[in-house]
Nucleic acid binder design. Sequence first.
DNA 1: CACTTACTTTGGACAATGTCTAATTCGAGC
DNA 2: GCTCGAATTAGACATTGTCCAAAGTAAGTG
Lengths: 138, 138
Amino acid sequence: MSDLLERLRGRGWRMTAQRRVVAEVLDGEHVHLTADEVHSRAVAKLPEISRATVYNTLGELVSLGEVLEVSTDQRAKRYDPNAHQPHHHLVCARCGAIRDVHPVGNPLADLPDSERFGFTVSDVEVTYRGVCPNCAAA
Amino acid sequence: MSDLLERLRGRGWRMTAQRRVVAEVLDGEHVHLTADEVHSRAVAKLPEISRATVYNTLGELVSLGEVLEVSTDQRAKRYDPNAHQPHHHLVCARCGAIRDVHPVGNPLADLPDSERFGFTVSDVEVTYRGVCPNCAAA
DNA sequence: CACTTACTTTGGACAATGTCTAATTCGAGC
DNA sequence: GCTCGAATTAGACATTGTCCAAAGTAAGTG
């Protein structure tokens, strides 16, 4: 994720300890934390960071296109650092585990003109739901 | 929607003025109201209906499979009475307008085994995003 | 028709998530 | 080092949803 910090600095992002910590928390594969989870983990590294800053920073990262906002449950938004490779999500209906997945084909092409109601359609978001191996075993 | 009332009564649903009003509000095509919108419209017909009852009733309708819960924005849940015909949603990114759409093919089949991570996948939810004709004109 | 009982409704307190603001602090260029 | 605009902070506030105990009511029974 140091590439991220480099990219952001290059874009004129003022670097602060708080922003660095938030970026560090959002590193990894299949990471889909809520704002609150990001805040908890950030506090572990930098105890005086405030909730507002975490929200601000997450919002900025989303605007910059470095992080995606996904809503796989209808509770809190989750933040996905894997923004540079298009993907969809597979969610466990029991425990809420989330995996990034890559379906074949382009779902956008599956919506016929007759079903577009004159909209200019630019994006599609797919959420698969099922039961993960852990929950199936239990 | 009187069929709905019949079906519910047949399933042992106790009929009350409040439940009737909520069911009436949820009648029509391309209806995707939030709980709060349902409440406002219900109050117009039955001023003393409470917020808790609207939430309760919506929850019951969802459990009974008569209404779907959809989350096209990450604010409030919306309730879709078109539960008996499988469909997906097309959302205007500017004004939030929602249409029911029917893509060709089965998106479930587009997720290869290698991308299922051992999950038992049972359902898929697709949200198309774009700009509606009204907003494009403005 | 009146009774009874279990199911529903109600209002308000509470919880979770997110937004906003004014005052303070701080990064980084000169 | 300064300076200044940008970032951070604490906490109030807003929105959406849940929970509970008390009161009300639908509908079967006799």
